[in-house]
Amino acid sequence: MTEEHNIAIAGLGRIGTLFLEQVLESDCGLNVVCVLEVKDTPGRQLAEEKGIKVVDLDGLIQIGVGVDVVFDMTGSGSFRSKMQNKYEESFNSYTAIASPAIARLVWSFLSDEYLPSIHSSKHQAMVDSMLEQARAGILK
């Protein structure tokens, strides 16, 4: 018997949609409780078709420990920080936030196919991180 794990997926762009599709196709014990996506993407449409709740960040936080793991597929360090802060403010130390690297690890157990990176390379991820730090005033 497979243990069920309740998950949420934040960000249903190109990569988040592929991840959602793979989880839905797999009998892997991952139950998608909700997704977070503000735009009308194919991933959001798929979630709605499957009856999966589409929530905003506050809606996710309200679910509380009903979500074991949030897979952050947004590619946004600022969103990840905001989500982490909201969880801390709600005293939820149970729900884990998994990075795209962890999602790739999970993907490797679910599929033989290649999951493209949110960033085209580690170097692009580093540049994106530096740009976000500059926008936040951390780097000058």
Score class of each variant (00 low, 15 high):
Glu3Ser: 14
Glu4Pro: 00
His5Phe: 12
Ala8Cys: 15
Ala10Pro: 03
Gly11His: 04
Leu12Glu: 05
Arg14Ile: 02
Arg14Thr: 08
Ile15His: 04
Ile15Asn: 04
Gly16Ile: 06
Gly16Phe: 04
Gly16Leu: 10
Thr17Glu: 12
Leu20Met: 08
Gln22Asp: 00
Glu25Leu: 14
Asp27Met: 08
Asp27Lys: 13
Cys28Tyr: 05
Gly29Ser: 03
Leu30Arg: 03
Val32Asp: 05
Val32Ile: 15
Val32Trp: 03
Val33Gln: 11
Cys34Trp: 02
Cys34Ile: 01
Val35Leu: 09
Glu37Gln: 09
Val38Arg: 11
Thr41Gly: 06
Arg44Glu: 00
Leu46Thr: 05
Gly51Gln: 04
Gly51Ser: 06
Ile52Met: 06
Lys53Val: 01
Leu57Pro: 00
Asp58Ala: 10
Gly59Gln: 11
Gln62Gly: 02
Ile63Phe: 07
Ile63Tyr: 07
Val70Pro: 02
Phe71Glu: 03
Phe71Thr: 02
Asp72Cys: 08
Met73Glu: 08
Gly75Cys: 09
Ser76Cys: 00
Ser78Pro: 00
Arg80Leu: 11
Ser81Arg: 15
Ser81Thr: 06
Ser81His: 13
Lys82Val: 04
Gln84Val: 12
Gln84Phe: 06
Asn85Ser: 15
Tyr87Ile: 05
Glu89Val: 10
Asn92Val: 03
Asn92His: 00
Ser93Gly: 07
Tyr94Met: 05
Thr95Met: 13
Ala98Arg: 01
Ala101Val: 00
Ile102Tyr: 08
Ala103Ser: 14
Ala103Phe: 04
Leu105Gln: 14
Val106Pro: 01
Phe109Lys: 12
Leu110Val: 07
Ser111Val: 03
Ser111Asn: 04
Tyr114Asn: 12
Leu115Glu: 02
His119Pro: 01
Ser121Met: 14
Val127Arg: 06
Asp128Ala: 15
Leu131Gly: 00
Arg135Glu: 05
Arg135Phe: 02
Ile138Trp: 03
Lys140Tyr: 05
